[in-house]
Design a binder for these strands. Structure first.
Length: 273
DNA sequence: CCCCTATCCTGAGGGC
DNA sequence: TGCCCTCAGGATAGGG
C-alpha cells in the first residue's frame, strides 16, 4: 500500500536510473486497471525521453520531453520496477516500457487498483484527481495554523480528515494511524474537538513520522517494493498499525482496533485521548 | 455537507 | 489437501 513515503522512495530510487532514457517499445499486457489504460497510451510514450520523476500526493509523475508526462497511481498493490536487462514477464505485469538502452520499466499490480495515463503537463494541472489534491504534508506546507483552519469546524473524525486527499495529500491508513498515535489523539476524535494546541502537535508530528518512514525507505507490509524491487524497513518500526491485542510500545496497555468507515483504525486506549 | 455502503481486485489466511 | 469464506483498502459513486 504505497503512501507518501513509499511513493517518495520510489521516485528517488528511479530518478537517476531513468533520466535520459528514451522509450523504444511499450507493451500493454492488461489494460483493465481501475482506470482502463487508453488504446493510445503507447503512442504517448513512444520515442519520448524520460526527464525525471516527481510525486503529487500518492501519484507518480514521470516527466517526458515535449511537455508530456506519464502519470501513475499504484493503488494498493502496485510496483514500478526498473531493470537494466530484460526480465521474463510475470503474472500481473501490466505495462512494460523498454528503452533504447535495453533497460525496462515495468508496472506490476496484482489488485489492479492503480492507473497509468499519458497527458500533457497542462492537462495534468487541470486533471480532477490532481487538481483536487490538498496540501502536501511533507513539503513543509502544513503548519498548525493551517491544519487548525482545515479541521476545527468539521464534525468528521480526525482519522477521516487526515485520509482525505483533498485536505492533505499522501497519507494512507498506516501513516494516519502512526501519526495519531504519536500525537496522542484517538482516531475517532471529531475535528471539532481538536484544540489549536493539538493541531500544532499534529502538524509537528506529521512530517516527523514521514521523515522517519522515508529514511526507512517505506513500509513493506505486504506488496510494497521500491523502483529497484527492494523492500522497505519501516514495517519494523510501526508503533500502532496492525498491533491489535499487542502491548502498547509506550505504556503496555492492550492496543485496540476499531472500524471507521470500513477501515481499521488502531489506537492505545491509554496514550490516545 | 457528511455519512455509509458498494465497487473494483487478488492473495492470504482461517475454518472445516 | 482443498474448498469456501472473509479480509485487506485507495479512490469514487450513489443513496440517505
Amino acid at each position: 500500500m504505497p503512501e507518501l513515503p513509499e511513493v517518495e522512495t520510489i521516485c528517488r530510487s528511479l530518478s537517476e536510473l531513468i533520466r535520459g532514457q528514451r522509450v523504444a517499445r511499450v507493451e500493454i499486457l492488461e489494460r483493465r486497471l481501475r482506470v482502463p489504460i487508453p488504446t493510445d497510451f503507447p503512442r504517448g510514450l513512444q520515442h519520448r525521453a524520460l526527464m525525471g520523476v516527481s510525486r503529487r500526493g500518492k501519484f507518480i509523475v514521470v516527466e517526458l520531453n515535449e511537455g508530456w508526462c506519464w502519470v501513475i497511481h499504484l493503488g494498493m498493490s502496485g510496483k514500478l520496477v526498473f531493470h537494466l536487462k530484460p526480465e521474463p514477464r510475470v503474472k500481473h505485469d501490466h505495462v512494460v516500457v523498454t528503452f533504447e538502452s535495453g533497460a525496462e520499466l515495468t508496472l506490476h499490480d496484482p489488485r489492479r487498483f492503480g492507473l497509468s495515463l499519458v497527458m500533457t503537463r497542462s492537462e495534468l494541472q487541470q486533471w480532477p484527481p490532481i487538481a483536487a489534491l490538498g496540501l502536501d504534508p511533507w513539503a513543509g506546507c502544513v503548519d498548525g495554523k493551517e491544519l487548525y483552519r482545515l479541521i476545527h469546524r468539521s464534525r468528521r473524525r480526525i482519522y477521516h480528515l487526515l485520509l482525505d486527499q483533498r485536505m492533505i495529500c499522501g497519507l494512507g491508513n498506516i501513516y494516519v494511524n502512526e501519526i495519531l498515535f504519536r500525537t496522542g489523539v484517538r482516531p475517532s476524535r471529531r475535528g471539532l474537538r481538536m484544540s489549536r494546541d493539538l493541531a500544532d502537535r499534529l502538524a509537528q508530528t506529521i512530517p516527523l513520522v514521514l521523515d522517519e518512514a522515508i529514511a526507512g525507505r517505506g513500509t513493506s507490509f505486504s506488496d510494497y517494493r521500491d523502483g529497484m524491487d527492494q523492500e522497505g524497513d519501516f514495517q519494523n518500526h510501526l508503533s500502532i498499525y496492525d498491533r491489535e491485542g499487542q502491548n502498547c510500545v509506550a505504556c503496555s496497555s492492550t492496543v485496540k482496533r476499531t472500524r471507521l468507515g470500513g477501515r481499521s483504525a488502531f489506537y492505545c486506549p491509554t496514550c490516545q485521548t
